[in-house]
Protein backbone atom coordinates (compact mmCIF):
# COMPACT_ATOMS: atom_id res chain seq x y z
CA UNK A 1 0.00 0.00 0.00
CA UNK A 2 1.11 3.56 -0.61
CA UNK A 3 2.79 5.47 2.14
CA UNK A 4 0.35 7.28 4.40
CA UNK A 5 0.37 11.06 4.24
CA UNK A 6 -0.15 11.32 7.93
CA UNK A 7 0.33 8.74 10.60
CA UNK A 8 -0.15 8.84 14.34
CA UNK A 9 1.67 6.07 16.15
CA UNK A 10 0.90 4.92 19.65
CA UNK A 11 -0.73 8.13 20.75
CA UNK A 12 -1.82 8.43 24.39
CA UNK A 13 -3.70 11.33 25.86
CA UNK A 14 -5.06 11.91 29.34
CA UNK A 15 -7.03 14.74 30.81
CA UNK A 16 -6.19 14.56 34.50
CA UNK A 17 -7.17 11.09 35.67
CA UNK A 18 -9.15 10.29 32.54
CA UNK A 19 -7.18 8.31 29.98
CA UNK A 20 -8.90 9.35 26.75
CA UNK A 21 -6.72 7.76 24.07
CA UNK A 22 -4.86 4.47 24.50
CA UNK A 23 -2.03 3.69 22.04
CA UNK A 24 -4.00 4.95 19.09
CA UNK A 25 -2.60 4.35 15.60
CA UNK A 26 -4.23 6.33 12.87
CA UNK A 27 -3.30 6.79 9.22
CA UNK A 28 -4.51 9.00 6.39
CA UNK A 29 -3.73 7.94 2.82
CA UNK A 30 -3.57 10.22 -0.20
CA UNK A 31 -6.56 9.98 -2.49
CA UNK A 32 -8.61 8.16 0.11
CA UNK A 33 -11.45 9.07 2.39
CA UNK A 34 -10.82 7.70 5.86
CA UNK A 35 -13.91 7.64 8.01
CA UNK A 36 -13.39 8.04 11.73
CA UNK A 37 -16.32 6.53 13.56
CA UNK A 38 -17.10 5.92 17.20
CA UNK A 39 -19.71 6.56 19.83
CA UNK A 40 -19.91 9.75 21.84
CA UNK A 41 -16.94 9.82 24.17
CA UNK A 42 -14.93 7.33 22.11
CA UNK A 43 -12.23 9.94 21.60
CA UNK A 44 -12.94 11.14 18.04
CA UNK A 45 -12.88 14.82 18.89
CA UNK A 46 -9.78 14.45 21.01
CA UNK A 47 -8.00 12.64 18.19
CA UNK A 48 -9.01 15.34 15.69
CA UNK A 49 -7.81 18.06 18.02
CA UNK A 50 -4.48 16.28 18.43
CA UNK A 51 -4.14 16.08 14.64
CA UNK A 52 -5.10 19.76 14.40
CA UNK A 53 -2.43 20.64 16.95
CA UNK A 54 -4.91 22.08 19.42
CA UNK A 55 -4.07 19.41 22.03
CA UNK A 56 -0.61 18.05 22.64
CA UNK A 57 0.13 14.31 22.98
CA UNK A 58 1.26 12.59 26.17
CA UNK A 59 3.18 10.07 24.08
CA UNK A 60 3.31 8.83 20.51
CA UNK A 61 4.61 10.08 17.19
CA UNK A 62 3.17 12.50 14.66
CA UNK A 63 4.48 11.28 11.31
CA UNK A 64 3.90 13.35 8.21
CA UNK A 65 4.93 11.99 4.80
CA UNK A 66 7.15 9.43 6.46
CA UNK A 67 8.95 11.83 8.75
CA UNK A 68 8.38 12.43 12.42
CA UNK A 69 7.52 16.06 12.92
CA UNK A 70 7.29 18.21 16.01
CA UNK A 71 3.87 19.81 16.26
CA UNK A 72 3.43 22.58 18.79
CA UNK A 73 0.23 24.24 17.68
CA UNK A 74 -2.39 24.76 14.99
CA UNK A 75 -0.02 26.92 12.98
CA UNK A 76 2.53 24.10 12.60
CA UNK A 77 -0.24 21.82 11.39
CA UNK A 78 -1.53 24.38 8.90
CA UNK A 79 2.03 24.81 7.63
CA UNK A 80 2.17 21.06 6.91
CA UNK A 81 -0.96 21.39 4.78
CA UNK A 82 -3.51 19.94 7.18
CA UNK A 83 -6.80 21.83 7.41
CA UNK A 84 -9.72 21.15 9.73
CA UNK A 85 -13.31 22.06 8.92
CA UNK A 86 -15.09 22.20 12.27
CA UNK A 87 -18.71 21.38 12.78
CA UNK A 88 -19.62 25.00 13.52
CA UNK A 89 -17.79 26.03 10.30
CA UNK A 90 -16.20 29.19 11.70
CA UNK A 91 -17.46 31.53 8.98
CA UNK A 92 -18.20 35.23 9.44
CA UNK A 93 -21.80 35.91 8.43
CA UNK A 94 -21.16 39.55 7.65
CA UNK A 95 -18.36 38.84 5.16
CA UNK A 96 -18.77 37.50 1.64
CA UNK A 97 -17.49 34.20 0.29
CA UNK A 98 -14.15 35.52 -0.95
CA UNK A 99 -13.51 37.41 2.26
CA UNK A 100 -14.25 34.31 4.31
CA UNK A 101 -12.08 32.03 2.20
CA UNK A 102 -9.07 34.31 2.64
CA UNK A 103 -9.77 35.31 6.23
CA UNK A 104 -6.52 35.66 8.16
CA UNK A 105 -4.44 35.02 5.02
CA UNK A 106 -5.48 37.91 2.81
CA UNK A 107 -3.37 38.66 -0.21
CA UNK A 108 -2.05 42.18 -0.30
CA UNK A 109 -0.55 44.48 -2.87
CA UNK A 110 1.39 47.31 -1.30
CA UNK A 111 -0.51 48.30 1.82
CA UNK A 112 -3.92 47.42 0.43
CA UNK A 113 -5.77 44.17 -0.13
CA UNK A 114 -5.53 42.58 -3.55
CA UNK A 115 -9.24 41.96 -4.05
CA UNK A 116 -8.88 41.11 -7.72
CA UNK A 117 -6.35 38.34 -7.14
CA UNK A 118 -8.31 36.94 -4.20
CA UNK A 119 -11.60 36.88 -6.06
CA UNK A 120 -10.02 35.24 -9.10
CA UNK A 121 -8.40 32.53 -6.96
CA UNK A 122 -11.57 31.91 -4.98
CA UNK A 123 -13.54 31.43 -8.20
CA UNK A 124 -10.89 29.13 -9.56
CA UNK A 125 -10.97 26.97 -6.45
CA UNK A 126 -14.76 26.79 -6.38
CA UNK A 127 -14.85 25.98 -10.08
CA UNK A 128 -12.22 23.26 -9.71
CA UNK A 129 -14.39 21.68 -7.05
CA UNK A 130 -17.31 21.96 -9.49
CA UNK A 131 -19.24 24.07 -7.07
CA UNK A 132 -22.09 25.58 -9.00
CA UNK A 133 -24.66 26.30 -6.39
CA UNK A 134 -23.50 29.70 -5.25
CA UNK A 135 -24.97 32.69 -7.01
CA UNK A 136 -22.00 34.96 -6.66
CA UNK A 137 -18.68 34.79 -4.86
CA UNK A 138 -19.46 38.25 -3.53
CA UNK A 139 -22.57 37.05 -1.75
CA UNK A 140 -22.52 37.44 1.99
CA UNK A 141 -22.27 34.13 3.82
CA UNK A 142 -25.41 34.86 5.84
CA UNK A 143 -27.45 34.40 2.65
CA UNK A 144 -26.16 30.86 2.01
CA UNK A 145 -27.87 27.58 2.82
CA UNK A 146 -26.31 25.07 5.20
CA UNK A 147 -24.89 23.01 2.35
CA UNK A 148 -23.42 26.04 0.65
CA UNK A 149 -21.80 27.15 3.89
CA UNK A 150 -20.27 23.72 4.28
CA UNK A 151 -19.04 23.98 0.70
CA UNK A 152 -17.45 27.36 1.37
CA UNK A 153 -15.79 26.04 4.52
CA UNK A 154 -14.38 23.08 2.58
CA UNK A 155 -13.28 25.27 -0.33
CA UNK A 156 -11.55 27.49 2.21
CA UNK A 157 -9.67 24.47 3.45
CA UNK A 158 -8.47 23.38 0.00
CA UNK A 159 -7.64 26.89 -1.19
CA UNK A 160 -4.23 26.56 0.42
CA UNK A 161 -3.16 23.50 -1.56
CA UNK A 162 -3.62 21.50 1.56
CA UNK A 163 -2.81 17.79 1.54
CA UNK A 164 -5.19 16.66 4.23
CA UNK A 165 -8.65 17.91 5.07
CA UNK A 166 -10.45 16.81 8.23
CA UNK A 167 -14.21 17.20 8.17
CA UNK A 168 -16.03 17.11 11.50
CA UNK A 169 -19.62 15.92 10.98
CA UNK A 170 -20.03 17.82 7.70
CA UNK A 171 -23.54 16.53 7.00
CA UNK A 172 -24.95 16.59 10.51
CA UNK A 173 -27.25 19.57 9.98
CA UNK A 174 -28.04 19.12 6.29
CA UNK A 175 -31.03 18.02 4.30
CA UNK A 176 -30.98 15.25 1.71
CA UNK A 177 -30.03 17.31 -1.35
CA UNK A 178 -27.41 19.29 0.51
CA UNK A 179 -25.89 16.16 2.01
CA UNK A 180 -25.60 14.89 -1.55
CA UNK A 181 -23.68 18.02 -2.61
CA UNK A 182 -21.28 17.79 0.28
CA UNK A 183 -20.61 14.07 -0.14
CA UNK A 184 -19.91 14.60 -3.83
CA UNK A 185 -17.50 17.32 -2.86
CA UNK A 186 -15.79 15.04 -0.32
CA UNK A 187 -15.36 12.42 -3.02
CA UNK A 188 -13.90 14.96 -5.46
CA UNK A 189 -11.38 16.08 -2.85
CA UNK A 190 -10.10 12.54 -2.52
CA UNK A 191 -10.06 12.12 -6.29
CA UNK A 192 -7.77 15.13 -6.45
CA UNK A 193 -5.28 13.20 -4.33
CA UNK A 194 -6.00 14.77 -0.98
CA UNK A 195 -6.21 12.72 2.15
CA UNK A 196 -9.67 13.23 3.59
CA UNK A 197 -10.78 12.34 7.09
CA UNK A 198 -14.52 12.19 7.59
CA UNK A 199 -15.87 12.12 11.11
CA UNK A 200 -19.47 11.03 11.02
CA UNK A 201 -22.24 9.32 12.88
CA UNK A 202 -24.16 8.63 9.73
CA UNK A 203 -23.35 5.12 8.46
CA UNK A 204 -25.00 5.71 5.10
CA UNK A 205 -22.71 8.66 4.45
CA UNK A 206 -19.68 6.73 5.66
CA UNK A 207 -20.31 3.78 3.39
CA UNK A 208 -21.03 6.03 0.48
CA UNK A 209 -17.72 7.87 0.40
CA UNK A 210 -15.24 6.17 2.72
CA UNK A 211 -12.37 4.01 1.46
CA UNK A 212 -11.19 3.08 4.93
CA UNK A 213 -12.99 2.99 8.23
CA UNK A 214 -11.27 3.52 11.54
CA UNK A 215 -13.51 2.71 14.48
CA UNK A 216 -12.73 4.00 17.96
CA UNK A 217 -14.06 2.33 21.05
CA UNK A 218 -13.43 3.84 24.47
CA UNK A 219 -10.25 5.51 23.31
CA UNK A 220 -8.83 2.48 21.52
CA UNK A 221 -8.77 1.67 17.83
CA UNK A 222 -11.22 -1.20 17.44
CA UNK A 223 -10.61 -1.66 13.73
CA UNK A 224 -8.88 0.00 10.79
CA UNK A 225 -10.04 -1.74 7.64
CA UNK A 226 -11.06 -1.00 4.04
CA UNK A 227 -14.72 -0.01 3.87
CA UNK A 228 -15.52 -2.67 1.32
CA UNK A 229 -14.57 -5.43 3.82
CA UNK A 230 -17.15 -4.27 6.30
CA UNK A 231 -20.89 -4.36 6.49
CA UNK A 232 -23.15 -1.81 8.01
CA UNK A 233 -23.95 -3.95 11.02
CA UNK A 234 -20.31 -4.82 11.62
CA UNK A 235 -19.45 -1.14 11.92
CA UNK A 236 -22.32 -0.60 14.32
CA UNK A 237 -21.04 -3.49 16.44
CA UNK A 238 -17.53 -2.08 16.40
CA UNK A 239 -18.84 1.28 17.54
CA UNK A 240 -21.10 -0.02 20.25
CA UNK A 241 -19.22 -3.10 21.50
CA UNK A 242 -15.68 -2.62 20.26
CA UNK A 243 -15.67 -5.92 18.40
CA UNK A 244 -17.44 -7.78 15.67
CA UNK A 245 -16.66 -11.41 14.93
CA UNK A 246 -12.89 -11.75 14.69
CA UNK A 247 -12.51 -7.96 14.24
CA UNK A 248 -12.00 -5.53 17.06
CA UNK A 249 -10.45 -5.42 20.48
CA UNK A 250 -9.78 -8.96 21.64
CA UNK A 251 -10.56 -8.52 25.27
CA UNK A 252 -13.24 -5.92 25.61
CA UNK A 253 -13.27 -6.29 29.40
CA UNK A 254 -9.78 -4.81 29.73
CA UNK A 255 -10.70 -2.01 27.40
CA UNK A 256 -12.95 -0.34 29.90
CA UNK A 257 -11.36 2.64 31.56
Amino acid sequence: MTQPLLELRGVNKSFGAVHVLHDVDFAVYPGQVTALVGDNGAGKSTLVKIIAGIYGRDSGDYVFEGETVAVHGPRDVAALGVEVVYQDLALCDNLDIVENMFLGREETRGIGLDEVAMEARARETLASLSVRTVKSVRQSVSSLSGGQRQTVAIAKAVLWNSKIVLLDEPTAALGVAQTRQVLDLVRRLADRGLGVVLISHNMTDVFEVADRITALYLGRVAADVPAKDLTHSQVVELITAGRSGDLGITNVATATI
Partner: peptide
Protein backbone atom coordinates in the same frame (compact mmCIF):
# COMPACT_ATOMS: atom_id res chain seq x y z
CA UNK B 1 -11.06 43.17 7.14
CA UNK B 2 -10.07 41.61 10.47
CA UNK B 3 -12.08 44.22 12.35
CA UNK B 4 -15.23 43.21 10.46
CA UNK B 5 -14.40 39.56 10.98
CA UNK B 6 -14.01 39.96 14.74
CA UNK B 7 -17.28 41.90 14.83
CA UNK B 8 -19.05 39.23 12.79
CA UNK B 9 -17.72 36.11 14.50
CA UNK B 10 -14.88 36.52 16.97
CA UNK B 11 -14.38 32.76 17.30
CA UNK B 12 -14.04 32.31 13.53
CA UNK B 13 -11.56 35.18 13.45
CA UNK B 14 -9.53 33.62 16.25
CA UNK B 15 -9.41 30.28 14.44
CA UNK B 16 -8.30 32.06 11.27
CA UNK B 17 -5.23 33.16 13.18
CA UNK B 18 -6.35 36.74 13.81
Amino acid sequence: RHLYAVGGNAEAARRAGI
